[in-house]
């Protein structure tokens, strides 16, 4: 018995070393700004940097916009596919997977060709329009995660019968979508939202090539020019991502507990 347990433990230990050692190393390095003693100086500098605050706020705003647009795009689509066009599901699933296959740099070059300032829809001509384009491109990037989360959420409810029940009670499409479907896939949309948030906060390629002051390019800038601050930033970015994942777990568990009391 004891021997057979050794293998799995070995795998766990190797995995833990692989993931944790660089993280601990980074953390330790980020504390060494003051010579001879540990301090949070690097964090203080980073968090106090107005540019950090501006870029982080900018990326947060964009993330929220992305989540809103993504949910409004994905929930009705996934709902409609489940309800009326189940034959199209493999096609839509394939399309939502494309952003994982096509590199972001290819996507953004495509955007620049189509929406440049001399095109018929010059989205890159002004800053606000570029923000819009960036939001849409983030929606595209987050599509695989959002669609899968929502589709799984829809699988858990009887979409068809609930729709028919609401219809026979006199409800039209907007009512069905916003009073019946959305509230019942709320948990799924939330987990999709946290994944989207994590993606948008760390995204570099699109923001950089569209020349917008997002958090990703700021990370890169600091990383190229400073010694201790980048490590502190990396740790902060990790904490943000982990917080998102933790929140998914919390909301997911809440839903599961509600289901278990059935």
């Amino acid at each position: 018995m004891k021997r057979s347990k050794l293998g799995p433990w070995l795998a766990i230990v190797i995995g833990a070393i692989y993931f944790l050692v660089p993280l601990i190393g980074t953390f330790e390095f980020s504390l060494r700004m003051r010579r001879g003693e540990y301090s949070f100086d690097a964090y203080r500098i980073v968090l106090g940097d107005p540019q950090f605050q501006a870029t982080f706020a900018y990326s947060t705003c964009l993330a929220l916009a992305t989540i809103l647009v993504g949910a409004l795009l994905v929930v009705p689509t996934a709902y409609w596919i489940r309800l009326r066009l189940p034959g199209l599901r493999p096609v839509v699933e394939f399309i939502t997977l494309l952003p994982l296959v096509i590199p972001a740099i290819v996507l953004v070059f495509g955007y620049l060709r189509i929406y440049n300032s001399s095109s018929w829809l010059p989205l890159t001509a002004s800053d606000r329009a570029t923000d819009l384009l960036l939001t849409f491109s983030y929606v595209t990037l987050a599509l695989p995660y959002m669609y899968r989360a929502v589709d799984t959420g829809l699988r858990a409810i009887d979409v068809r019968t609930l729709t028919e029940a609401a219809e026979s009670l006199g409800a039209g499409w907007p009512t069905i979508l916003f009073r019946v479907i959305f509230p019942n896939v709320r948990v799924a949309v939330l987990s999709g939202a946290f994944l989207t948030f994590a993606i948008v906060i760390g995204e570099f390629t699109m923001a950089s090539l569209l020349d917008r002051p997002a958090f990703g390019p700021y990370l890169q800038l600091i990383g190229a020019n400073r010694a201790y601050e980048p490590s502190a930033l990396a740790i902060i970015a990790f904490i943000v991502t982990w917080a998102c994942m933790g929140l998914i777990q919390v909301f997911g568990r809440g839903a599961r507990m509600a289901a278990e009391t059935r």
Binding site: I157, D158, T161, L162, A165, A166, V180, P183, N184, R186
Partner: peptide
């Protein structure tokens, strides 16, 4: 009235 009740869970 449906066989599966179809009450709105939310």
């Amino acid at each position: 009235v449906f066989q599966s009740y179809a009450l709105f869970p939310n």
